[in-house]
Design a protein around this nucleic acid. Structure first.
Lengths: 333, 333
DNA sequence: GCAATCCATGCAAGCGTTTTCATAGATCGT
DNA sequence: ACGATCTATGAAAACGCTTGCATGGATTGC
């Protein structure tokens, strides 16, 4: 059987109507007499007619497709976000074109442009850092964009996230209350907007206010191995409380600490600023800031459907509640 | 600025050539005089012309898009596969339409059909169980399909995987050599082809050959929680060696075992039949069958590009080497 | 130097839909 | 019962591109 064997034309001929009428039936336009509709539908079924989405897209200028720009699909954090996006997209019958920008094979702005060339109806962006080049592409297009679990520096794009300042503050307070005074912040990407514009200022300010010396920030720690490795430095600097942006890296840190015979949480506390399943399956279980990832994805996608349907947004900047989950890497209260 | 402000027409007019020539330049057809090509290209740059992929797709009947059918994107196992697929796809300039079929919002065969309607040039399928309804859709189309890390019962589709029989046998041998005699097999989906047609027969046969009684198979254990829960049953049955299909579930089992004071690996051994990062970050580290997931994805995608380019496949069934990684949940050799 | 060949380009017919506009017939109000 | 209003339908023009075919001028062979 061939790729497209039966077109709207064939259906029209068989049903003895014009293709316009078939098109109406296919699209649920109710300006069709019941008897006609039934006849057309039975022919559609008999011939196994399936509309060609590409042709539909060209004619209607809507592809019912959205682009997803994700930094790294093997990071569970994004996978959970994507799940929420996917479910809502399915409900609204949108397909998802996935663009992982983790590899260096293509520049991020080219990836986005290619999505635009595919005539996606909208995009969800969840990379950490919104480069000027990418932002420019977003500015140039009228295709709606929503940020999920990330922020843009100038804040003009619609977004769904948590209150990063508040989360950071609460995490720091917890460490401080537990008597920890030699604090450190371990992050993957220093220049990610959520770090440079949110968490880092809060961290530095906290250190200053409490007279805890110079703020210690360790960069480029994203993977498990990098986490394991950075522990030596933390120990050397006598750090006794650390906030780690990714829970995967945090897992590396606590495993290294255990291997070094350090007592957690008595002598060393760890809080992950982002969390996935991983925080539950390591021992001790990770105290962590839990973002409602699935919901962030779902809300972002829902916002996007509104934007794509020319509806207005009541809130362009949505903050969802997070949870500071106290587990075994901090003292019990 | 509007969605599509500049078309091939505008470029043609400005460059004083026909749209055919512009099309040739865009597509790298070298039947164009150098001077003409340069002129057209400079106009393209000046006007910021970007070809409309939908129109290209309709006219050329090629969309440079492939569909990915994935059971659950939050499962790291599939994420790593997808990464390999994505990288090769990027190299060959294919976009990926992601279809997660984990939710019950849409029947799997409808999802596949919708991919076909989008005129994807090919599909990679990595769900565990290939239902007859889906298989029928595959049979009906001429669009190529490759299976990644999964198998079809009748084996007529091209696929990339490991030798599941051999892997299962090696894992069982290891447990047996370590003196374990009360073995169990913990799986998520009994009816997945790789289980019902590969691992289970090997397991049952092994039990029989070694006179180890009745084969114990525990089904529907996929998540961490389910793993944690099933341990009680294992203990009750005095199981001392278990093979678990997913390492996430295995993590649940070992954590439950530790909590129950069971000594691993002395009194209880665990081998994960599938593995991801998770096997490295739990303690004790999981002994596991490591599939080259990234490579499986990459090879599958490469096969698909050949199929889409009407090339022949030298091997339709590729088996990649796996590794039985001996770690801390089995005795040291 | 003339027919044969090649090269660069243009013309125009699709690709399979949607959608605007026109219209014939049915329905309505009075 | 007659003009006015609806309703269901069809005709045909887009949508933006690719591609087979035709063609005129340049190049080649002998």
């Amino acid at each position: 059987m061939h790729k497209q064997d039966v077109t709207i034309y064939d259906v029209a001929r068989e049903a003895k109507v014009s293709m316009a009428t078939v098109s109406r039936v296919v699209n649920g336009n109710n300006n069709v007499r019941k008897s006609t509709r039934d006849r057309v539908q039975s022919v559609i079924k008999r011939l196994h007619y399936q509309p060609n989405s590409v042709a539909q897209g060209l004619a209607s200028k809507r592809t019912t497709t959205v682009g997803l720009i994700i930094p790294d699909m093997t990071n569970m954090f994004f996978a959970e976000l994507a799940q929420g996006i996917n479910d809502i997209a399915t409900i609204y019958r949108y397909s998802i074109i996935l663009s992982s920008v983790s590899n260096e094979l293509m520049k991020e702005e080219d990836t986005v442009q290619s999505l635009l060339n595919k005539q996606v109806d909208g995009m969800i962006y969840m990379s950490d850092r919104l480069s000027p080049a990418v932002h420019e592409v977003f500015d140039r297009t009228s295709t709606p964009v929503v940020l999920a679990s990330t922020l843009d520096a100038d804040g003009d794009l619609p977004s769904v996230a948590i209150d990063y300042r508040k989360a950071m503050k609460q995490a720091l307070d917890l460490l401080y209350q537990d008597g920890k005074r030699d604090l450190a912040f371990v992050i993957s990407d220093y220049n990610a907007t959520i770090n440079v514009a949110r968490r880092i200022p809060v961290f530095e300010n906290f250190i200053k206010e409490h007279h805890l010396g110079v703020p210690r920030i360790y960069r480029d720690v994203l993977t498990y191995d990098q986490g394991e490795k950075v522990f030596a430095q933390l120990q050397q600097e006598h750090v006794d409380g650390v906030i780690v942006s990714s829970d995967l890296a945090a897992a590396g840190i606590i495993n290294a600490a255990k291997a070094a015979g350090v007592k957690i949480p008595e002598d060393f506390e760890v809080i992950a600023a982002g969390s996935t399943k991983i925080s539950e399956l390591v021992r001790p279980k990770l105290t962590c800031v839990r973002s409602p990832l699935y919901d962030i994805g779902a809300v972002a996608m829902r916002m996007l459907t509104k934007l794509m349907g020319d509806e207005d947004l009541t809130h362009r900047k949505v903050k969802l509640p997070f949870n500071l989950v106290k587990q075994e890497t901090t003292l019990n209260q």
